[in-house]
């Protein structure tokens, strides 16, 4: 039976091999790995893969796990259509 991929970021379909390659190329922060591989840029905004990427960073570099977990957070914190923001740009004044 064909061996399937081991996905770290399922939203953007980034495999473990791709993340390890990025770390070996010198990306030892969540943000750096994200910029190179798109891991964490999908629908769930890294909620599932953030921890997995940090584990791989700590396993394949000298950055400890807790440091590797530190990443930036930006709004919106969840998926949101731009149209929705545009329609209510001023915010619904309730």
């Amino acid at each position: 039976m064909e061996r399937k991929n081991a996905y770290v970021c399922r939203c953007e379909e980034v495999t473990q091999e791709e993340i390890i390659a990025a770390i070996r190329a010198g990306d030892t922060t969540l943000d750096a790995v994200k910029r190179r591989t798109r891991a964490g840029m999908g629908f769930c905004q890294g909620r599932t893969c953030r921890r997995l990427v940090a584990q791989l960073i700590s396993a394949y570099s000298d950055v400890p796990f807790d440091t590797a977990l530190e990443g930036s957070v930006r709004m919106p914190v969840g998926p949101l259509s731009l149209g929705l923001i545009a329609d209510t740009a001023g915010g619904t004044e309730e």
């Binding site: 061996r3 991929n5 081991a6």
Partner: peptide, 13 residues
């Protein structure tokens, strides 16, 4: 909280 995940071949089957 979010549930933790694991990485292994076939983890999205």
């Amino acid at each position: 909280a979010t549930e933790n995940s694991l990485v292994f071949p076939g983890n999205t089957l």
